[in-house]
Computed example of a mutant assay.
Amino acid sequence: MAYGEKPQTHVIDTSKASAARMYDWLLGGTENYDVDRDACVELLKIAPSSQQLARSNRDFLRRVVRFLAAEKGITQFLDHGSGLPTQDNVHEVAQRHHKDAKVVYVDDDPMVLAHARTFLDDNDNTKVLGYDMRCTGDIRAATEGFLDWDEPIAALFVSVLHCLPDTDDENDPARLIQTVARQLPAGSYMVICQLVSDDPVVRRDVTDLMAVATNGKWGRVREKHEVRRFFDGLDIENPPGLVDVIDWRPDSAPPPMHLRPTDWVEWGGLARIPG
């Protein structure tokens, strides 16, 4: 495995929850602490479907990477906010279809980086970068010579943009997506989804809880029309378009509407860089 140039400068803080470790717990993992589990308990009080959403989101990641590799012929992946390694990571899915597929994982969580170094040690076609996903110039520079930026790349923003706050500069999530889209060669793809809710109380209470639990390392739960704007200028893959991710090319029949969560959903889709 190749590593990023940026050294790990932060120790693992076990006094505050981490979104990556909370996600790990919701998926049934063990790489988390009491503070993460306590935050998840409070989260489930506000949004009881959170564990179900975490699992359906992971299933979506597997399906969309498989689709890109098997049906679109994509052999390069740039995974922003990759989180802790679990089963069927991006490189495992992609390399089943293209054994030489290259995957770059980007995350600035010290625990994610520590586990990724161990988990990916024997895979020369993966690279781990310890950057904030908003450091687009640094990420591009660090992947030169590993990814071929003249050939299509799939940039993944799966369940991470709700961790970023709205700003008036290039760090704004929508601006981030636009910047990455401009960097990617024509024919590349972007996978974008985040947590959304039609319930203003859920949006407010989850956002407030996570902001406190993670010591401000959080953005906000958004609405569908806000996420839809992230796709401006991109060619959305139809079918199925932008949907609850359980409806994105499911392997089996998704649950009927009356059995689905009413608190929040993971919402988004796949889009191609035109040209």
Rank of each mutant, 00 (worst) to 15 (best):
Q8D: 09
A154L: 08
E223G: 06
D148W: 06
D199V: 02
A141H: 08
F157H: 02
W264F: 09
G4C: 11
R228Q: 12
D79T: 11
D235C: 07
H91R: 06
R222K: 07
L53S: 12
D150N: 12
V265C: 10
G233S: 09
E5Q: 12
C135K: 13
P85R: 09
E31C: 14
N125S: 13
Y189G: 04
W264G: 10
I236G: 03
H97L: 11
Y33G: 06
D247L: 12
S197G: 09
I236S: 02
V64P: 03
A253R: 14
Q183F: 06
L176A: 05
V243R: 08
R96C: 13
E144C: 04
V202K: 08
R204D: 13
C193M: 09
P255I: 07
D132L: 10
A17H: 06
D107H: 10
R204T: 07
R66D: 14
K16L: 13
I177L: 12
G4P: 08
G216V: 00
G73E: 10
D107R: 10
D100K: 13
V191A: 03
A94H: 04
L26R: 13
C135E: 14
G130R: 02
Q178A: 12
D205C: 04
F231T: 03
A141R: 11
T9N: 08
D79Y: 11
F230E: 02
D100P: 04
R21Q: 05
G4Q: 10
V106N: 07
N238V: 13
R58V: 14
L195Y: 02
D208P: 01
Q95A: 11
C40N: 09
D150P: 00
P250S: 08
P110N: 05
E5R: 14
D168N: 12
P239G: 12
V35D: 00
F157T: 01
W218P: 00
D232W: 00
S197L: 10
L209G: 03
V158D: 05
D199L: 00
L176T: 11
